[in-house]
Amino acid sequence: MNRILASWDRFFFQPQTAKVLGVYRIAIGLLTLYSFLLFAKDTTTFFSDQGLVTVATLDKVVNRDWHSLLYWIRYPMGVRLVLAGLLVSGACFTVGFYTQVSSILLFLLVVSFHERNGLVLNSGDAVLRTMLFFSCSHPRERPSRWIAYGVGGSRWLAPQEARSWSCPGPSG
């Protein structure tokens, strides 16, 4: 039993190099951007009330809890602006700019699109949602730190990102 607990502790809480987490974050960010850039040309068709599925229909058909910003933003222009916000937050997340805020924002916006029209989603989208959910535990970063990361590409993978599960956040 002790061995199991020790293994658990080592797996989840022992400090690790941040490079893996940094690569992971960049990979998820790029995947999210790729996924939604492909959606871009059909955004209003898939996600607005002028498109293939209206919110009124979802209200009738979907009999479970669901949450989406697009429940309130239904017109094509508004939906395009939300997508633009998603792409901006995705870019910020990818480069590590305000990672904690951008990761939460990105997750909420991705969920907003996914929940708005599940008819166009596949299993890969569920994987993306899951990865972004756990990415919300990224530690806070100060903007000055991001500037430092931005100067040298390799510094995007800075050690301050270690241990997203357990790290209380960089203190200095």
Binding site: F46, L52, T57, L119, V120
Partner: peptide
């Protein structure tokens, strides 16, 4: 096809669900 693949998913799901409300939305679109 790579850029249009979501339409395939949409058609498959519509065929699976056979929901008149979704079908009417499609007809209006």
């Amino acid at each position: 096809a790579w850029t249009q693949k979501r339409y395939r998913k949409y058609q498959q799901r519509m065929a699976d669900l056979k929901n008149p409300a979704y079908a009417e939305d499609a007809a209006r679109w």
